[in-house]
Design a protein around this nucleic acid. Structure first.
Lengths: 116, 116
DNA sequence: TTAATATATGCGCATATCCACATATATTTT
DNA sequence: AAAATATATGTGGATATGCGCATATATTAA
């Protein structure tokens, strides 16, 4: 029961739903989440952590970046059962469409990206 | 998005999951919920109200009783999509099984029930 | 090693949540 | 109308949550 409560709490927040929405598009680093949602770094990081802890996300490191993506189906049965529902629910929302739009224009800066 | 947040918050609490669990068995009045879960009257009433507001429950009056039951599928798409998941999730839990057991022994008292 | 960049986290504050207690409301019975 | 019963709700207190700010940590580049 505690797992279900954790999953539900993870979905009980607008910031986290917005994060799931853009991660349905593609894997993102923290700074891309910040840019797409126009939120602070600590806010992005903390909410990504909550979604990861609830089983929605998987993190991997690539250089200085932490890349977050939706978990595989095997990781968390509840979370992945909900994902199709979420995707459908996210399709007709102004804010979420706006976030996805900004994601397309977001830049991943850092050592790995030499400036030209 | 706010509707999804409301539904998620409704599921983010152990008391409310326990209420959904016994209502999967059958329609209940507030005093039966109190007895099955061994909680106070105000706690039962308030949490039933939260589940109703989120679209999970429907209430009808019968004399002095308020009878709560799971909503029909048409009422709330999100809530009803989750119900089968919940049902499966509730099956192997000690607390929830105990609640269902107490529900079987609960008594609906009141003016309608003449003592013999 | 030092500097630079990306991310995580300690902390304090504002707000939300949950509960028990007391009380208000609604319905039925007398 | 008054009493009895079931339920809803106002209130205050304890705890949880979400955030910004500052700082710590991790990795890479020089």
């Amino acid at each position: 029961m505690q797992e279900l409560i954790k999953v539900s709490k993870a979905l009980s927040d607008e910031t986290r739903l917005r994060i799931l929405n853009i991660l349905l598009e593609r894997e993102c680093c923290v700074c891309e989440v910040m840019q797409a949602l126009e939120i602070s770094q600590s806010r992005a990081s903390r909410n990504l952590g909550i979604l990861e802890d609830a089983g929605f996300l998987t993190a991997r490191r690539e250089g200085t970046w932490m890349l977050y993506s939706l978990s595989e189906s095997s990781e968390n049965r509840i979370a992945t059962a909900l994902t199709p529902l979420l995707k459908e629910y996210f399709s007709n929302n102004e804010i979420l469409a706006h976030d996805r739009e900004r994601l397309r224009h977001s830049v991943r800066v850092g050592p790995g990206c030499g400036e030209e």
